[in-house]
Structure formats: structure tokens, C-alpha cells
């Protein structure tokens, strides 16, 4: 990152924020379209999330009485900023220029910020549905966060590094982690589904129970930005899983011209995120919502123990194979 101009282009345009914005909206469209087609419907046109976003920006903003307006305005922006920052550390085309030792932890931390923001919004809305939704979202955070962290930690354990880019390089040399750690991969997918609050884990915003949970009182640009945050989190989450488990943008063999490597890497990134999207959309379509107490049972009994088993397996594998 020596050249400031190319650094700015990397952050702002490609593969930075502009691309991220468009790709997030595209994935949101694709998610809705796949769900619609699985239900034998036509589904929305491709510009739909964009139109929704623009329309919401143009709507009136209503301040619920007794709400701290500054926090209500600022909180969605904080959430959006957090996930957008997290995106910069994930390798998209080649390695991220901002990579450093420990960026995996930073990304995971930044990705849980939207949930905290949702809780804050729900709590501040002074609406009983929002408050219940906020409490539910934090309860859910406690349940899925541990297995999700453990599942994403195991590749780091095996690769012996806390940098996502170096985990990708390790996979280029050896093997994709999805083959080495299938249990961790599944746990990570379930954790991501829960993090994005999609069915069957859409407990905090359960429409038929608590209207829209923390979202109930959001209007206008606040709603637009929170919506965008969820879409961006989708891209970040799937990119993270693609990088950590599916080998990221790097190929197992070397591609000679540097520009070709970049292009191929970019398309690999697209293909892998789309694969993650297809899996997550199928889960969303094929299931109903579970209850928070059932999630508590399932989460701590099965998912958490599966991730702990995965950690144990990795420790044994490390002892026998990697460091042998």
C-alpha cells in the first residue's frame, strides 16, 4: 500500500465500497429471486433492492417521541461502517493490502456490531415489540457467536496464523479447509445464517410474532441503511466463508500473467460467494422459524459441541500431520 491513489481506488471503488454496494444489492436480489423461483413464482426484477433502497432514502423520517434522535440517526451508520470496514480485510482479488496478523478477529468483531446496534435500536425505540426483538437478537447473539467463532478459529489453528490472507495462502499450498474441516464449514454456514437473522433464525424480527422486531420503528433513511447493512453483511459473511473455507481468490496452481490471476481470482470469488448464497437461500426456503428456547437447546447442545469436536479434531490433526 505504497501508492495512495491506488489505495483509495481499492477502498472506494474496486473492490471497495462502490463494488460492495452494488454486489450487496445484487446478492439481495438473487436471494429473493432464488427463493421466489423455488416457490414457483417469478420474483422481483433485478433492480428491486436498488429501487427499495432509493425509495426508502426518499421517505419521510419519523422520530418516535422520546427517542434520542442523534443515536437513532447514528446507530445504523455505525453498523454500516463496521461491516464495510470488515470487508476491507477480506481478500477479494489477491490478498488484501490491509491484511495484518489478527485481522480475522477484527473482522469477526466488526461483524457482530450490527447485532449490537439492532439491540440498541430496539431498546431505544420505546416500543414493546422492538424491545422484545432487541432482547431476542442479543440472546441469539450469545447462542450462535461461540460456535461461529470456534468454527472460524479452527482453520486459523491449523494454518497457524490469525490473518485471513495467510489462511488463504496456506490453503493454496495444501488443501481447502472445507475438505479438511467439513464440520466446521457446516457450523460456520449455520452461524452465518443466524448472524444474518434469516429463516430459521429470524427470531428477532419474527413478523408474525413481534411485527418487525427492532426494525418496527425505523423509517426512511434509517431503514434504508439498516437494510443495506444486512445486505453488506451477507457479502462480507459469504466472502469470509469463501476465503477461510473455500480457498478465497487464489488457485492451487500458479497463473502466469499477473492480471489474469487477478481476473480469475475475482471470478473465483464471485463463484464461491454465489455458492454460499445458494446454500443459505435453500436453507431459508426449506425451513420455518424455530423458537428461541429451541434455538438455545439446539445451539448449545449440538452446534456448540460440534464446533468443539472440530477444534479437538484439528488439534489432533495438527499434532499428527501439520507439525509432524
Amino acid at each position: 500500500m505504497t501508492d495512495p491513489v491506488s489505495g483509495l481506488i481499492y477502498i472506494l471503488i474496486f473492490p471497495g465500497f462502490l463494488f460492495l454496494f452494488l454486489y450487496a444489492l445484487f446478492l439481495a436480489f438473487l436471494d429473493r429471486k432464488i427463493a421466489a423461483r423455488m416457490q414457483q413464482r417469478v420474483g422481483p426484477p433485478f433492480f428491486q433492492p436498488f429501487a427499495d433502497f432509493i425509495k426508502m432514502l426518499g421517505k419521510e423520517v419519523i422520530d418516535p417521541a422520546g427517542v434520542d434522535r442523534v443515536i437513532f440517526d447514528a446507530a445504523p451508520l455505525v453498523a454500516l461502517a463496521a461491516v464495510m470496514t470488515a470487508y476491507l480485510y477480506i481478500p477479494i482479488v489477491g490478498n488484501s493490502p490491509l491484511a495484518f496478523q489478527g485481522d480475522l478477529v477484527v473482522v469477526l468483531y466488526l461483524m457482530s456490531l450490527p447485532t449490537i446496534v439492532l439491540f440498541l435500536l430496539g431498546w431505544l425505540s420505546r416500543n414493546i415489540f422492538s424491545a422484545i426483538g432487541g432482547i431476542r437478537s442479543v440472546t441469539q447473539l450469545f447462542i450462535y457467536e461461540v460456535p461461529f467463532f470456534l468454527a472460524l478459529m479452527t482453520p486459523a489453528l491449523m494454518a497457524g496464523t490469525w490473518s485471513i490472507s495467510e489462511i488463504v495462502i496456506w490453503q493454496q499450498k495444501n488443501m481447502w479447509f472445507v475438505f479438511l474441516q467439513p464440520i466446521g464449514f457446516i457450523v460456520a454456514l449455520i452461524g452465518l445464517q443466524a448472524k444474518l437473522e434469516r429463516t430459521p433464525f429470524d427470531i428477532p424480527e419474527a413478523e408474525t410474532e413481534i411485527v418487525a422486531g427492532p426494525w418496527t420503528e425505523l423509517t426512511g433513511r434509517r431503514l434504508a441503511i439498516m437494510d443495506l447493512t444486512v445486505d453488506v453483511s451477507f457479502v462480507v459473511g459469504s466472502a469470509l466463508i469463501a476465503a477461510v473455507f473455500l480457498g478465497g481468490p487464489l488457485m492451487p496452481w500458479a497463473v502466469t500473467p499477473a492480471w489474469l490471476a487477478v481476473v480469475v481470482g475475482f471470478f473465483l470469488f464471485l463463484a464461491k460467494t454465489l455458492a454460499v448464497l445458494l446454500i443459505l437461500s435453500s436453507i431459508k426456503v426449506a425451513t420455518g422459524r424455530i423458537r428461541i428456547d429451541q434455538l438455545n437447546d439446539i445451539g448449545w447442545k449440538y452446534i456448540a459441541s460440534a464446533s468443539i469436536v472440530q477444534v479437538g479434531i484439528v488439534l489432533v490433526m495438527n499434532y499428527l500431520w501439520v507439525y509432524a
Binding site: R37, M38, Q39, Q40, R41, V42, G43
Partner: peptide, 13 residues
């Protein structure tokens, strides 16, 4: 689900 994904939707436009 996957049969539907690959077949035509029944929607009347």
C-alpha cells in the same frame, strides 16, 4: 424446491 427452481414458474404475468 429444486424441481421448481429448474422448471418454469406458474405465475400468470
Amino acid at each position: 424446491m429444486f424441481e421448481n427452481l429448474l422448471s418454469r414458474p406458474i405465475t400468470i404475468l
